Computed example of a mutant assay.
Amino acid sequence: MPAGPAPAAVSAADQALLERYLEHVRVERRLAERTVTLYSLDLEKLAGCAGAAGVDLVAVQHAHIRRWVAQMHSAGRSGRGIALILSGWRGFYAWLGRQGAIAGNPVQGVRAPKAPKPLPKALGVDESVQLAEFEDGEADPWLDARDAAIVELLYGCGLRVGELVGLDVTASGLARGWVDLAAAEAHVLGKGGKRRSVPVGTAAVAALQRWLAVRGQPGGEAQPALFLGRRGTRLTAQSVWLRLKQRSLAAGLATPVHPHMLRHSFASHVLQSSGDLRAVQELLGHANITTTQVYTRLDFQHLAKAYDAAHPRAQRKR
């Protein structure tokens, strides 16, 4: 893949500067040979850009660097790759400054283009329902009832795993969160110590009732936590991650599921059905709606797939 302007001939003066700098990082800074090789490649690119622009390395300006960054980006170089190149260039010009060869570092303040944030991973509706309705006949009934309730709360309420494991059976002054089954509401302590209430669906209420019927106290000592491990202590977030991965694979899903994937699925599916971004923001407990807006991209992906599958003008000829 092209990474920028075609290399041009390097002047003898510029070549001498590059060799002196590489000797400096090799001998005085004692950088690894692999690192020195990478520096050399980055500086060859710099010299090529300068040669193509008809300027000496010591005459390069801030505007030149910005232009070359734009050229690399448009040629397909990733933001991370450009950032690494800029780091090498910045070090070279810092060294030139200490040598008294330039008045200011032209790379200072230049940033690589930001890489687009990856979309959160979410399950499709069918996959989510498949996981939620899965009953593991080979598992311990106690574990199966607990894990089923966990899946229903994560997917049905969009809880964070930390909020889930912080739930107690009943409300109290010490409780971080609890579920009011009569009112079908979960009260949780979210990020930044902010409390919020979210509705609990019929399926989640039923799953919780099944779990509470068998929950008991495995350790023989009263424990306020809603979800317990086999030793009777509060279930940890790490245990939820592990159990959910195992359950999703047992349910026949192609991809191992983690707790936040169910939160993403909850948000995406509610937004697909309602189109109400503000409501999704409230349900998720996001302080800023820009955090919630990432789910509009997931929603668009869903619409695009539906269009490709259904619209006659989207069909490709065989």
Rank of each mutant, 00 (worst) to 15 (best):
E138M: 02
Q130R: 15
V27D: 03
G158Q: 12
V10M: 07
E28D: 10
R231N: 08
G91C: 03
I85L: 07
V205W: 06
D144G: 00
L271V: 03
R77M: 15
T292Y: 10
S74D: 14
A279Q: 02
G193W: 02
H286L: 14
K305C: 04
T35Q: 15
H311C: 08
G190T: 06
L43R: 01
R318E: 06
L189F: 14
G137Q: 12
G76P: 10
L174K: 14
V169H: 04
Q223Y: 10
L31F: 04
L22T: 04
G162A: 09
V151A: 00
G79E: 05
P118E: 12
Q108M: 13
S197D: 04
R195A: 08
I82W: 05
P106Q: 09
K121C: 00
V200W: 06
E44R: 13
V257H: 00
H73L: 00
G220D: 11
R111S: 07
Q217W: 10
G137C: 11
H187A: 10
A175T: 11
R146A: 07
D299W: 07
A47N: 09
A304T: 02
G81M: 13
A3M: 14
G190H: 05
Y307A: 09
P218N: 14
N105Y: 11
H62A: 03
T296L: 06
G81F: 11
P118R: 14
K117Y: 04
R215M: 06
Y21M: 01
R67G: 14
W142S: 02
L18D: 05
Q223M: 14
Q15N: 14
R195D: 07
P5M: 15
L153V: 05
V205Q: 09
R263Y: 01
E185S: 06
D56P: 02
V200Y: 07
L271P: 00
R67S: 15
A287H: 03
Q108D: 15
L244G: 10
T35E: 15
A63N: 09
R176D: 03
P5W: 15
A115I: 03
R215K: 05
V25I: 13
V36L: 00
A304N: 02
Y307F: 14
A148D: 07
S128N: 12
Q61F: 04
V110N: 01
L164E: 03
H260M: 09
L253N: 01
E221P: 03
Q315Y: 00
V107S: 00
K317R: 15
L242Q: 02
P118D: 11
A183N: 09
F300Q: 10
R146W: 05
G91R: 03
V294P: 15
S172D: 13
G275W: 04
F300V: 07
L283M: 14
A251T: 08
A183C: 08
A251G: 12
H264T: 05
Q246R: 03
W178N: 09
V200D: 09
L143F: 01
D42Y: 00
Q246W: 00
T292A: 09
A52I: 05
A115W: 02
I150K: 01
A175D: 11
G88F: 00
R160V: 08
L46G: 03
E19N: 10
G162D: 06
Y295W: 05
I65D: 00
V69D: 11
C49D: 15
E221L: 11
R215T: 06
A204H: 02
E163R: 10
L57E: 05
A52H: 08
A222Q: 07
S74W: 12
E127C: 04
H260G: 09
L57V: 06
